[in-house]
Computed example of a mutant assay.
Amino acid sequence: GAHHGEFACDVLESARKDCPDFFAALRYRIIEPFPVLQDRQSETLAGFEGKIEWRESIDALEPFVGVHFSNELLDAAPVHLIVSVKTKTGSTDWLEKFVTLNDDEFAFLHQPIDNRKLRDHLQKLPACPASYETEMNLASLDWIENVSRKLARGYVIIVDYGYPRDEFYAPHRSAGTLQVRAQHRLLASPFEQIGHADITAHVDWTSIAERAAACGLQVKGSTDQHHFITGIFSELGRDSLWQDVDSKTKRGLQTLLHPEMLGRSLQVLALAKNVGLAPPLAGFKFG
């Protein structure tokens, strides 16, 4: 979804101010399954009546020409939790972690993997030692398939936390990437503050790119958020962008750009379909 619609509002307001011809042709569709959030978005976007349409899912979206943008979407998708265990023969095999009840409390239970898609995808992983735990996000692969079917021509731009496969499954990342947070505090278990905590896992960018290629999409750029925004600034003229910007906005932008904040931890992947000899995207000129 689009949360409360602030990003959509900024995009539309900027287009109306700086690119009136583009704004006149623009139609902005929001994928939002929750009516309460759609109501909040409607309030934020009240000044753009006639420009916004909502759809409950990608499946409900008509084929389109344009750009599909997502920010921190895939890291919130449900994942399979898996753990490597030593077998009787001395080799290792993967088990999946399921949830069970233990004395009226939630606990993990390790079980053999009977999901064929999951077992097939596990063949792409490097060898991992016993007790190695990680995640497998098959939902993100289904998502990119669905988006590719709807995109007739244009781009898919994904902003999220993640690593390429060799780094995602590196030996030192033996506890995986799953994080549980509530009120900006890191929790020790997904069984804490159930219903009130955000549970996320990083994205395996290699798997996304491979599935995208299989669906007819081409990778047009991959970089971190710092270089992506800096590249855009270089095309638009950074000095003009800072004019009439308040101190709060400047601090927010510095958070997005600073390498030790969100500048390096968030990455951007651009995929394209049927764009021909379109010029390179400015966000990837330094990445």
Rank of each mutant, 00 (worst) to 15 (best):
L125R: 06
R238C: 05
S70F: 12
V99M: 05
L37V: 03
L125F: 08
G154Y: 02
L236G: 07
H172Q: 14
K117I: 00
D10Y: 02
A8K: 10
A8E: 08
L257K: 07
W143N: 12
D166H: 15
L95T: 00
T100V: 11
R264N: 01
R181F: 04
Q179L: 09
R211E: 11
W94R: 01
F48H: 15
T100C: 11
E13K: 07
N115F: 01
A8C: 12
G5D: 12
H4R: 15
P129C: 03
F64I: 00
R238M: 11
L101I: 06
A282Q: 02
K250Q: 12
D18C: 07
W54M: 04
L81K: 13
G1S: 15
L241C: 10
L257W: 07
K17L: 03
T200Q: 09
A107E: 10
G237C: 04
D224I: 06
F98D: 13
T177M: 08
K124Y: 07
L26N: 01
G221R: 11
A130E: 14
G195F: 09
I31A: 10
A127E: 09
D244R: 13
T255E: 15
L37K: 11
S234D: 10
Y155H: 09
A197V: 09
Q193A: 13
E133W: 05
L37S: 12
D103R: 09
R29Q: 13
Q254R: 13
A15G: 04
H110K: 13
E167A: 11
L256C: 05
F108Y: 14
L138G: 02
R27T: 13
